[in-house]
Design a binder for these strands. Structure first.
Lengths: 358, 358
DNA sequence: ATACTCTATTTAAACGTTTTAGATTGAGGG
DNA sequence: CCCTCAATCTAAAACGTTTAAATAGAGTAT
């Protein structure tokens, strides 16, 4: 198609004028504005966004990083973000970090830096750079900070801090914001509910240590909540009931097979994510256990599938759409150079008891 | 960070030389190459990809358009594409078109044009421009063609043709490729299986007409397969068993409620997507029907959830990962200026009978 | 008339690359 | 000592915008 120059030539004005009418910055007389608009229309002009991005250093693109798009909770999250992004003329770049090809070095953020994305949303625990890449990674994060590229995290506060500390970024840098939920309390309440129903052998299954991070803090928070509820009821903690390092439907399923074959198996299970819990549920019903008669299961996230499952999964509901919405709107604010009314925002979870537990 | 010029100054060479060593085009002496590389390292230089994209007209970005990221089948698809894209230094831009804010005009493809994405993958039925936007949309598609931006579709051949015809693009344009499966045959086999098991009242539930397209051909193919199987067995077609215009778990669930309350309700159901079928299954078991004792259900897609559900869903398996892989690798070929060994490629589906049917 | 204000428009530089054509260098050959 | 040639390297244009500063032109007030 045509360029600014061609439009200008046809309209008999300078390219600056055309640019001005396009961006509506300074005053352009109504006469020339119309003349220019007509030429734009007839020449079928379209602005070259990459040239514009090159010049203005605004690409109108954001990146959303998440553990895996394959988990419905994250699909829902990004779906919400995407809607708002398009509404504001931003494009969204997708990044799942369960692909081994991006792990260990810091390529994924480096690439985002090189492409000058305007903002980044990070869900869950992004892979840290391997030690031999740490120096470079620090420089990248430093450069992001100088460029004032905002980041919005959805995570635990401590994990957020680990990330920042790793790169030597101060808490008050101003370009980082955190969205969080209280996983410890949420799981505490779920387990307490189970205990009140008489359960004392409660399996706890989750993703545990992932990627290259020393600690998976969201997981640990959940585990803490579990332990607190147990302790409060004076139920001894038994490490054989804890399985770590697994995820998804298959992971949950496998873990159930293992735990249920214990000499003294659990009567209840809590999974750190709904896909895990649904996997547990699947294996339990498949192996002939009655739910919630013989085993109870509680999940985390409240994905759509949970309420359609047979039996319906009891779970901890997290307002993922609200979080997604907050992620984008706050990022937008930050990208606009504004400051955000808070750098940490909490969301409430809710224990929803359905059919898989009693 | 620094720019090409700064590196050049430090190394005491011209920026052309630095660019040359970066891109390894012409011969650069080993001595200067090392000198330059050292400066790049010490100055912590990073190429500005948007400047590069501006100059070369290659943005190293592709877009993946799909009905909704929220459907596990598409999440799996894009997950596969994403892996390969990153492997080849491409970024992927996500576009779900179930957001009403992009419908009816052609903004989503126009924006992709403006951003000069290098290639586009289109799953399912993208919204057509409203009549008053058709002229502009044609120009955009024309411009894409001149720019030689390749498109890979995952759809039915006729739908592919409708798309091309809408914009007046010839079949042999060379920038368009189609990946397809035989939906008619797949559903035919599924229904035939049901009929062989003695079912004669078979509900058919699907998305039907969507968006602004006059016809949803993938849906119609499935419906044709259904009709063919019925006809072959001399079972009269009953339109009251067909529900259209619905989707997802909730949609399937609602439709079951409706159909099962008929005076002469179906004994079997086929949904045009697994989420629909799982919704049916959910409603069926919830209302106390035994599956597959009283009602049978068959789905389409074979999403991961299908095999963990209770009961396990019988479904038509589509090799979505293979399709995703083919989508990217062929797009890559096309983007590299190559020609593809075929412009239409077929994939095989497979009827998988599990527990939800007999 | 003169000087002064606005308003509308243009000039021209700049953004960070790639790339082509040509300049420079130095070696080898006559 | 000059010429040729290959090997290296550089100058400069180009990509399509935005934008600060300059300019022109039309009123206005003096």
């Amino acid at each position: 198609m045509s360029t600014l120059k061609e439009v200008a030539d046809h309209a008999g004005v300078s390219i600056a004028t055309v640019s001005l009418v396009l961006n509506g910055k300074t005053t352009v007389s109504e006469a020339t504005r119309e003349k220019v608009l007509a030429c734009i229309e007839s020449l079928n002009y379209r602005p070259n966004m990459v040239a514009r991005g090159f010049k203005t250093k605004k690409t109108m693109a954001i990146a959303v990083l998440l553990p895996t798009i394959t988990n419905p909770i994250y699909a829902t999250f990004i779906h919400t973000v995407e809607y708002l992004a398009h509404e504001n003329n931003y494009q969204v770049i997708l990044f799942s970090y369960d692909h081994e090809n991006i792990l260990s070095n810091f390529d994924y953020l480096t690439d985002l830096y090189d492409r000058m994305v305007d903002g980044i949303i990070i869900c869950g625990i992004p892979p840290l750079p391997a030690p031999n890449h740490l120096k470079k990674a620090k420089q990248i994060m430093q450069a992001f900070s100088e460029r004032k590229t905002p980041f919005v995290f959805y995570n635990e506060e401590e994990q957020f801090s680990v990330f920042l500390d790793t790169f030597g970024i101060p808490k008050d840098d101003g370009n980082f914001m955190l969205l969080k939920i209280d996983r410890e309390q949420a799981v505490y309440e779920a387990v307490k509910h189970l205990i009140c129903s008489g359960h004392t052998r409660i399996g706890f299954i989750g993703e545990g240590v992932v990627n290259t991070y020393p600690q998976n803090i969201p997981y640990q928070k959940k585990l803490s909540g579990y332990k607190r509820a147990l302790a409060e009821a004076a139920i001894p903690f038994s490490s054989e009931l804890i399985i770590t390092g697994t995820d998804g439907y298959q992971g949950g399923s496998d873990c159930f097979a293992h735990l249920s074959s214990l000499k003294n198996p659990p009567t209840a299970y809590v999974g750190t994510g709904d896909t895990i819990s649904l996997g547990i549920l699947s294996a339990a019903t498949k192996s002939g256990f009655s739910v919630p008669g013989e085993v109870s299961v509680i999940g985390f996230d409240n994905i759509l599938e949970a309420s359609f499952w047979n039996p319906k999964l009891s779970t901890i509901s997290v307002p993922i759409k609200d979080i997604g919405k907050a992620a984008f709107t706050n990022l937008l604010l930050l990208m606009g150079g504004g400051t955000v009314p808070f750098t940490i925002k909490s969301f409430d979870t809710e224990l929803i008891i359905r059919e898989s537990s009693h």
